[in-house]
Every structure is written in structure tokens, then in C-alpha cells.
């Protein structure tokens, strides 16, 4: 389910069944022309990816709104902010929290993170079509579904 009005009314009635939260972690910047297209595309692909991931497992996972941070900001600070999200999420009976990102910088901070970090290699190919889950994205969704299921 998603963090929206109708899904949250379902959530409140079925809390015991939804034990997993997915948080897409997305860097944002507009200052560097040369990386603008790449970063915006990564954001698009990520949004599309988690949308389809949510569809496959919607009865047991809640897709949180994206955690967006300035690409240039220090992760020492961001880690505190992201962990504050975890503290809030854990006030509900959630068992598993997954952060999904294409930004490799987080990998170094994985140990300090109060959730599971899934770093995926960014899909930069021009061919990635963000209107329909085909080929590589579908493959990636299936594999992450398997990974999440292994935690259940």
C-alpha cells in the first residue's frame, strides 16, 4: 500500500498484516548541468521501480514517500535525519524497513542506519522506459521481491 488516504484507512484496520516499509532514497540537485539529466532520470527510474515493487507486494508493504536530500549534503547529517524517520516508523508494528537507493554514498553509512539498505546499481540506459515494466526493470523488481520475501 501507499501512503495515501484510501490505503491508510485500510492500513489502520489491517495493521497486523503490514509489517514492512519501503523508503526510496533519492538525491536532488539542480546546480550541476552535467549531472542534471542523469540525476533526474535516476529519480524517475527509482519512482517507477518502487511503484511496481509496491504493486507486487502491496498487501504486506507500505511504500513511504521518498526520502529526498540535497546531493551535496553531508551524509553524517542525513543519517540522523533518516534514522529519525525510522524511529517514527517504528512507533507502528513494523518489523522490516528497507531503504532503496541508487546512490552508492549510503553504502558507507549502512552500519549506522536503523534499517536495511538496498543499494542497486543505477540503470542509466537510455532505453529504460518508465511507462511500462519491461525487461531489466521487471527483472530488478522480481529480484528485490525475492530478497524482501527472504526477510519474512
Amino acid at each position: 500500500m501507499k501512503w495515501n488516504k484510501s490505503d491508510m484507512s485500510t492500513y489502520i484496520k489491517a495493521k497486523e498484516y503490514i509489517d514492512t516499509v519501503i523508503v526510496p532514497v533519492i538525491p536532488f540537485q539542480t546546480s550541476k548541468d552535467e549531472e542534471l539529466i542523469k540525476d533526474a532520470h535516476a529519480q524517475e527510474v527509482m519512482t517507477f521501480f518502487v511503484h511496481h515493487l509496491e504493486k507486487e507486494l502491496s498487501g504486506r508493504i507500505m511504500l513511504a514517500p521518498s526520502y529526498v536530500y540535497l546531493k551535496s549534503s553531508e551524509l553524517d547529517e542525513e543519517i540522523k535525519r533518516i534514522n529519525a524517520w525510522v524511529d517514527d516508523i517504528q512507533s507502528q508494528p513494523f518489523q522490516h524497513i528497507f531503504f532503496i537507493t541508487y546512490d552508492p554514498k549510503w553504502k558507507k553509512y549502512e552500519k549506522e542506519m536503523k534499517g536495511n539498505l538496498l543499494w542497486l546499481p543505477a540503470l542509466q540506459s537510455e532505453e529504460i522506459d518508465v511507462t511500462e515494466p519491461r525487461g531489466i526493470i521487471r527483472e530488478q523488481v522480481n529480484q528485490v521481491v525475492e530478497l524482501i520475501r527472504s526477510f519474512w
Partner: peptide
């Protein structure tokens, strides 16, 4: 679509 909570 699972009729319980909508998984696939």
C-alpha cells in the same frame, strides 16, 4: 490480485 490485501 489477492482478495485479502491486494498482493500479486
Amino acid at each position: 490480485i489477492c482478495t485479502h490485501l491486494g498482493c500479486v
